[in-house]
């Protein structure tokens, strides 16, 4: 799952200015068809909820970029509206359904914590020492689109989608547990200033994100593994969770990093040939 770097770099303090290359990745909102009414309604609600959550989060952990300090914090701090137990249970279930998808290698591989995109279900470093570079689109003579085009290529097995690029460092998910990913995702200081509406859209409509469910096959025609949750189930879960104010459930042992995000590469590191 890949984020739009323009949005994020623009919103991240201290980040390099967005790339000035012609024609690259206009902001998401300007390229997308009009949002559905459902999305608009949910989004507006969520936006209000999120504003409070974000300010609260920013106050609580100014020096904690990964939000680790939130462990044990009351969930109410993130969900300003009191949910009924049923709503809370529903949101929690939705959260985990969503996270089943978001922690799949198809998503985490391009949200690395070291600037190095990962490949395969084993999440090993991208071959040939490829890294995202400052503008997240690769190096001068090795742009992401040196190989990745706007769609999967059946002949070479190279995956592709519009705007193929790396998520910025502030959106690193690799090594985070579900709760930390969620916190990071909803934190405007890290998510590129996205509103909850934007996040909802990114998660459910963006072509680069949706690529995960049509990941194509590799160079030998073997299909890539999509996220373990069907697309519509995932989308519904995201909507439910955000509509409920994006509450982050209590930690469970099963959510620790490593249980949902592959860590050590099974193959040699990217700097090896």
């Amino acid at each position: 799952m890949r984020a739009q770097p323009q949005c994020t770099t623009r919103g991240s303090s201290g980040a390099r200015p967005p790339a000035t290359r012609r024609g690259q990745n206009p902001p998401v909102a300007s390229r997308r068809p009009d949002p559905t009414t459902v999305r608009r309604r949910v989004g507006t609600t969520a936006l209000l909820l999120l504003a409070a959550a974000a300010s609260s989060a920013a106050q609580e952990s100014p020096a904690d970029p990964h939000g680790a300090g939130h462990h044990g914090a009351p969930e109410g701090a993130e969900a300003p509206r009191e949910l009924t137990p049923a709503e809370r249970a529903e949101a929690e279930a939705a959260f985990h359904t969503m996270m089943e998808a978001l922690t799949s290698p198809r998503c985490v591989n391009c949200h690395p914590n070291d600037g190095v995109p990962k490949q395969t279900d084993a999440a090993r470093a991208h071959l040939f020492g490829v890294a995202g570079s400052d503008d997240l689109h690769g190096y001068d003579a090795l742009r992401c689109n040196a190989c990745h085009q706007a769609s999967n290529d059946g002949w070479s097995g190279v995956p592709g989608a519009p705007g193929w690029s790396l998520a910025p460092a502030s959106m690193a998910w690799e090594g985070l547990d579900r709760r930390a990913i969620a916190r990071s995702m909803m934190d405007p200081a890290k998510n590129g200033g996205r509103s909850a509406d934007d996040i909802l859209h990114h998660l459910t409509e963006h072509e680069l994100v949706l690529w995960a469910w049509e990941p194509g096959g590799d160079g030998e025609g073997r299909p890539r593994t999509p996220p373990p949750v069907p697309l519509e189930t995932y989308r519904a879960a995201v909507r439910t969770w955000i509509a409920a104010g994006a509450p982050i459930p209590e930690a469970r042992a099963a959510d620790a990093p490593g249980s949902d995000a592959p860590d050590s590469p099974a193959e040699p590191s990217g700097d090896a040939p």
């Binding site: 071959l127 040939f128 020492g129 030998e220 040939p273």
Partner: peptide, 12 residues
């Protein structure tokens, strides 16, 4: 069956 996984030395 492909360069990369067959780890050949690059310029670096």
């Amino acid at each position: 069956v492909i360069y990369g996984p067959y780890r050949m030395a690059l310029l670096r």
